[in-house]
Nucleic acid binder design. Sequence first.
DNA 1: CGACCAATTGAATTGATTCAAGGTCCGTGG
DNA 2: CCACGGACCTTGAATCAATTCAATTGGTCG
Lengths: 219, 219
Amino acid sequence: MLSQLNHDHALRGMEPPDSTLRSLLTHVRPCALSFYPPNATIYAQGEPVGPLYLVEFGTVRICRLTADGRRQISAFQSKGDVLGFEPGHEREYSAECVDRVGIRLLRPASGRFLDADLLAIAHRTLAEAQRHMTVLGLMRASERLAAFLLDLHERQDAGGFIDLPMQRNDIADHLCLTIETVSRALRTLKDAGVIRLPGVSQIEVMDVAGLQHFTRSVA
Amino acid sequence: MLSQLNHDHALRGMEPPDSTLRSLLTHVRPCALSFYPPNATIYAQGEPVGPLYLVEFGTVRICRLTADGRRQISAFQSKGDVLGFEPGHEREYSAECVDRVGIRLLRPASGRFLDADLLAIAHRTLAEAQRHMTVLGLMRASERLAAFLLDLHERQDAGGFIDLPMQRNDIADHLCLTIETVSRALRTLKDAGVIRLPGVSQIEVMDVAGLQHFTRSVA
DNA sequence: CGACCAATTGAATTGATTCAAGGTCCGTGG
DNA sequence: CCACGGACCTTGAATCAATTCAATTGGTCG
């Protein structure tokens, strides 16, 4: 299972010809694959920051509960993503499984991770956070959803069909909307003809350019 | 001028006993201080990513223009902050001077920066981005403003008086609101008695706990 | 088939934006 | 020294987008 990580298809498309994972894996002892059921917690907000993990399959939500009980999902991580990198000593976010998930502990060959490897991971995490900052700050409901679907679309390149492992609940907390608004935004995109909804957790992208047009800004 | 950077007061309060700057400065050749007038551009969106800078005085806005002409300010940087760290090869953000600004180029003693130093800067930048993600995602107008003021308050510890070097325009684009809404949110906080407004660019914090209560969530 | 949970839809409400006036501050020039 | 102009800020009224509340539909598993 790990061997396939050295192939390109295990690394999702990224703009700079970065090689986070490839490099990382040369300095890391591969650990056994662990399986987690849906809604299992990999690590929790408030814990001391611990090891890094590599997602082998399934989807993980990185989320955070506020003092008054609301939830924000900063990202979804899936196959090939590295999990668990955080600034500070205490976890600000939890990592929870959306569906059935397989992850590997990443244990550095020498006692500590190489700063170069951590830096590469930090770069990627930062880029994601900044992108999401723009989504939340500048886009309205259907634009956020369009951006989200485009993101999934290019990650899981499955011939125009997107699989939504997470439920509306999770999408809403990721885009900082309500589930009702997510539902209506989906309908807006459907009515505009850019997507179809063959099933509750499946989306067919009919018109990628049209979807991109919906996002209008992130550029 | 640079010597004072080795003193604590040049480093603003941070949660983990991090020592970004102290460590950084031991591996860096101090360069001459440059002065920029208000609205000058230090670097621009679209340029290749270049060197790092250290802010000595003044305030810099890190901002980004979208394809359709809107602007988002991801952060304001002031004395002691390091400027110019970005993932990727091309700048996603510009750095522009809010007021009169003094910065120093940070040039590594050896050819490249130490990964450890870059990692420390990345940590801080990421923490800021994540915090702002929460502000934009979970808070409404007066809560965002309260969070913003609290941030300024603890940076520039000047006995309850906050100086606002940037104009409403900039605050609005940072909090992703309109200037009118910023104005009304200020009024809300004033009417609640947690701040006073002695002048347009000066704020007196009357009740820190009250301000924190306004943010209610970020925890 | 019925029960339960997730998702959708509709109607009323809230919060922020837009549009349109005023107001304040400050520098310049009479 | 005061009047004027312009930039910035504040305030008000109307509009719009998203949320809330409530009901209904759809899907899945006993």
